[in-house]
Amino acid sequence: MTDYGLLTSILHAILVASTPLVFAGLGALIQERAGVLNLGIEGLMIVGALAGFAAAIAGQPLGISVMAAALAGALLASVFAFLVLKCLSNPVATGLALTLFGLGLAALAGAQYVGRAAPQIAVWEIPLLSDIPVIGPALFSHDPLVYLSILVAVCLWWFLSFTRGGLVLRAVGENHDSAHALGFSVQGVRFLAIITGGALAGIGGAYLTLVQTPLFVEGMTAGRGWIALALVVFASWRPFRVIAGAYLFGSVTILQLHSQALGLAIPAQWLSMLPYIVTILALVLISARGQGHRAPGSLGQLFRASR
C-alpha cells in the first residue's frame, strides 16, 4: 500500500466501511418511498454478498459479479413482493422471515465458498483529483463501486424529485388510495420498487465480500441491514442524507478503532456503542423536528383495491 498519511488512510477506510450502508440504505429508501416497509434488507444483503462472491470466484469480472449480486437480491426480493403484494401477508413478519431465510440460505449455499479468497478489485484513480494531497488519495482512489454508490444516490434523487415516475412512486407511498383512484397501478409501482431495492441491497452485500473483506462466511453482514433501515429514518427518506448518515456511521466505526490503537483512555465498550448511540440521538432529534421529516403516509400499509 502506498505511503498515505494517517488522515488519508482514515478517510479512505471510512468510505470503504460506509459504502455497503449507502447501497443498502438507498435500497431500503426507494421501497419506503413507495410505501413498502421491508425488514428483509439483511437477508437480501447476505444473499447478494454470496452471489457476488461466487461470480468473482468463478473468474467473472467485477461488472458481472455486481450484476449477479443485484440479480440475487432482486430475485429474493420478488419472493417478498409476491407475499406482501399478492398474498397481502403482514409486511413486518414477512420481512423478518426474509432476513432469517436469506441468512440461512446463504449459509447453506455458501458452505462451499468458505475458506476461499476473491481476487482483488482494481482501483480507479480519478485523474487530476486523485493527485490532490491528503484528500485526493482518500476520496478519489477507490474501487468503482464507491463511485457507483454516489451515482446511484444522485440518480435516485433526480428520479424522485424531477421525473413523472418519481412523482407516481411518491404518490403511491403517500396515499395509495388516491394514487389508485388516479389510475396508477399501486401494486405495479411497489413491485418495481421492491425489485430495485432488493438489487441495491444485494450490491451492498456484495461490496462486503468483493472489496471490504474478500472472503465469505455465513452471517458476515453482521447487522448492517438493520443499520441501513435505521439510516433511512435518520435520513428522513432523502437520498443524500442517506449518504451523509452512512458516512457518519462509518466515521464513528473507523474512528473508534483508531482511537483505541492510539491508546486513548476510553473504554472499548463505549466506543463500540458509539455508532449506535449516534444513530439513536439522530433519530430523536429528527422526530423532534417533526413536519417535513415524517414517513411516507402509506408506509407499511397493505393495499387492497376496493373494486
Binding site: 407475499l83 398474498c87 397481502l88 401477508s89 403482514n90 413478519a93 414477512t94 423478518l96 422471515a97 426474509l98 432469517l100 431465510f101 436469506g102 441468512l103 440461512g104 440460505l105 449459509a107 447453506l108
Partner: peptide, 19 residues
C-alpha cells in the same frame, strides 16, 4: 391471507432450521 401466513411461517421455519 391464510396461504400467505402459511408461506411466511414456512419461510421462518426453514430459516430457523438452517441457521
Amino acid at each position: 391471507r391464510l396461504k400467505a401466513l402459511g408461506l411466511s411461517a414456512l419461510l421462518v421455519l426453514t430459516a430457523c432450521s438452517d441457521s
